[in-house]
């Protein structure tokens, strides 16, 4: 092994060692990839829309539910986007007896997450 090569090897090993030290911390801080509106809508820990709403125009939506109105033609049904946002944020305002969870009020979804879900649902 020639001298320069050995030094290069040692330096790169040192760097690797340093990287090994640093990377766990970096990995912990690295943000998870942001879920899409559809992912939030489908995720049963998040929006879980499919528990109660069918999506007749969405082939990926697997559900037999018939509890709440199917999510279709949403842009026509909610010409005012804010109204749809409000319905997801706290549905008990419009109907005190509703079974729909108040996603915003109770902190089930963040405001940013609700906006993504609204964008997705609006396209259905």
């Amino acid at each position: 092994m020639g001298k320069p090569l050995a030094i290069v090897t040692a330096v790169s090993l040192s760097l690797l060692l340093a990287a090994a030290f640093i990377s766990p911390a970096r990995a912990a801080e690295a943000p998870q990839p942001e879920p899409t509106g559809q992912e939030l809508a489908f995720d049963n820990r998040k929006g879980n829309c499919l528990a109660c709403h069918a999506m007749p125009g969405e082939p990926k939506a697997v559900t037999n539910t018939n509890i709440a109105p199917p999510l279709i033609g949403m842009a026509a049904r909610f010409p005012d986007r804010r109204k749809l946002y409000g319905q997801i944020w706290d549905a008990t305002r419009a109907n005190p007896d509703t079974a729909m969870p108040p996603f915003g009020k109770n902190g089930i979804l963040t405001d940013a997450e609700i906006n993504k879900v609204v964008d997705y649902v609006y396209g259905l």
Partner: peptide
């Protein structure tokens, strides 16, 4: 999630949850 027992078992009896 803001459910009562009755939200499902009185108000939506026989309907399908997913």
């Amino acid at each position: 999630l803001n459910f009562s027992c009755a939200s499902c078992h009185v108000d939506h009896v026989g309907e399908i949850l997913r």
